[in-house]
């Protein structure tokens, strides 16, 4: 059973926990000016009260933490080394960063999203990938935009690792993109899907939108070769 304790000293009497709880576990004691756990058996551990609580005054014991959510090891490392007094639940999270489970979870979603996008937008699929790639280029913060294509390539190799292993060979306006490690290819192999489907189209255009936005060029696909080990794309660079 889940037990809930309220740190009465930390509580700021906002009663947001009373409002947000889907099963009405809390009631507000207006005499003490504090919330009380009125129906503890109703709690099913959604932790929405803990999330909304401005002073982190609500503690649950016995609630199953959703360890399959992926937690960044960089962030869990900071949290585990803050010398704080109630690290138990955070230590659980830090030990289970759940990368494999998160990857499996993403795989399923990616496959279904790809299929839905193809059905809905049809021939507009490359544009969807392109737009997503362009927004990635503006979203990832970097201390300065790359000055030329080479810098953009370096950055792309860094940003896409380790799920993707990219190689770029540029000969004036002709570019060869070699994709060695590929998350999408692994997924296709696992699910027995032939290469060159909607996910491949989405990924290539995503990459080209990302590179194009960063290097202020447009990349136009000439030929594409796909195999079980690596895929390569011949690309023409169009300067804007």
């Amino acid at each position: 059973m889940i037990t809930i304790s309220i740190d009465e000293k930390a509580c700021v009497s906002c009663s947001l926990c009373v409002d947000i709880c889907p099963t009405k576990v809390f009631s507000f004691n207006s005499v003490k000016d504090l919330p009380e756990v009125a129906l503890p058996k109703e709690c099913f551990g959604c932790l929405s009260c803990s999330e909304i609580c401005p002073s982190d005054a609500i503690q649950h014991t016995g609630a199953a933490l959703s360890s399959c959510f992926h937690h960044d090891t960089y962030c869990t490392n900071i949290v585990s080394k803050l010398a704080v007094s109630e690290p138990a639940s955070f230590e659980d999270i830090a030990s289970a960063t759940g990368l494999d489970e998160a990857m499996r979870d993403i795989s399923v979603r990616l496959l279904s999203v790809g299929t839905v996008l193809k059905d809905v937008v049809g021939a507009g699929l490359p544009s969807v990938g392109l737009m997503a790639g362009r927004s990635l280029a503006t979203q990832l913060p970097r201390y300065r935009p790359p000055k030329n294509l080479e810098e953009a390539f370096e950055l792309a190799i860094k940003e896409f690792a380790p799920a993707w292993g990219l190689e770029f060979k540029q000969d004036s306006d002709n570019l060869k993109v070699c994709v060695k490690e590929c998350f999408v290819r692994g997924l296709c192999k696992q699910e027995n899907i032939s290469l060159g489907g909607e996910l491949c189209v989405l990924f290539f255009n995503y990459l080209s939108g990302y590179l194009g936005k960063m290097s202020k060029t447009q990349l136009k696909l000439v030929t594409a070769e796909r195999s079980a080990e690596s895929c390569s794309y011949e690309v023409k660079i169009m300067h804007r």
Binding site: K9, A10, V12, S13, C14, L16, D56, V84, S85, P87
Partner: peptide
């Protein structure tokens, strides 16, 4: 004893209404 991991509100004297 470890130190607190709570937000600033936990030490604030204002009441949230």
């Amino acid at each position: 004893p470890r130190i607190t991991g709570k937000p600033v509100c936990s030490d604030c004297t204002r009441k949230m209404r």
